[in-house]
């Protein structure tokens, strides 16, 4: 994966169950594997499937990954205020968040925060919020300098249906400035 550092890349994704946290990690991970990288993804969740807390920790590396634990995330995708609060300290890099799902963010590092209004845009473009995750994934592809074509391909491998809308949402997120 063509990341900025070229070595171990840590990505943390967290939110509520049902927001596609694990799915996003799965697409990212498969994309990296298809490009010849080694990948680990820890997923943790509460007892509930929908509504409870979910976290995916991805490590992508050209070499075998020893520790799969994200302790210094290069990118943190926060889909909820509680997830943001809980894991903010684990991120040394960029925090991507959806402002519609947030009341506030800490103000000590504005340069590391990137608001991606995925839920709002999903409602506007697709008349529902279901595609917010794919818009965020598109934006993440850009932010983390990942290979866009490889991401499109991995997404189609993982997502069984509604390919056209998913591709449109990914594209939309990727093109956000």
């Amino acid at each position: 994966m063509a990341t900025a550092t070229g070595t171990r890349t840590e990505i943390l994704i967290s939110g509520f169950g049902g927001q596609g946290v694990v799915r996003m990690g799965q697409i990212l991970g498969l994309c990296a594997i298809n490009q010849g990288h080694r990948v680990t993804m820890l997923k943790s969740h509460g007892t509930e499937t929908r509504g409870g807390y979910v976290r995916a920790q991805l490590v992508i590396s050209p070499e075998y990954v020893d520790s799969p634990v994200v302790e210094h995330a290069d990118v943190f995708v926060a889909f909820s205020q509680p997830a943001y609060k809980k894991f903010y300290d684990l991120c040394d890099g960029t925090v991507m968040y959806d402002p519609e799902l947030f009341e506030n963010v800490v103000d000590d590092a504005p340069e590391r925060h990137l608001a991606v209004p995925a839920t709002k845009l999903s409602k506007e473009k697709f008349s529902n919020q279901l595609f917010a995750n794919r818009i965020m994934l598109g934006a993440l592809t850009r932010v983390a300098s990942l290979d866009y074509e490889a991401m499109r391909k991995a997404m189609l491998e993982v997502i069984p249906r509604f390919h056209e809308q998913n591709l449109a949402a990914l594209d939309f997120g990727y093109r956000l400035s």
């Binding site: 594997i33 820890l42 997923k43």
Partner: peptide
């Protein structure tokens, strides 16, 4: 639980 639940290449 980690090895059984974690995803990896």
């Amino acid at each position: 639980q980690v090895i059984s639940d974690m995803w990896e290449d």
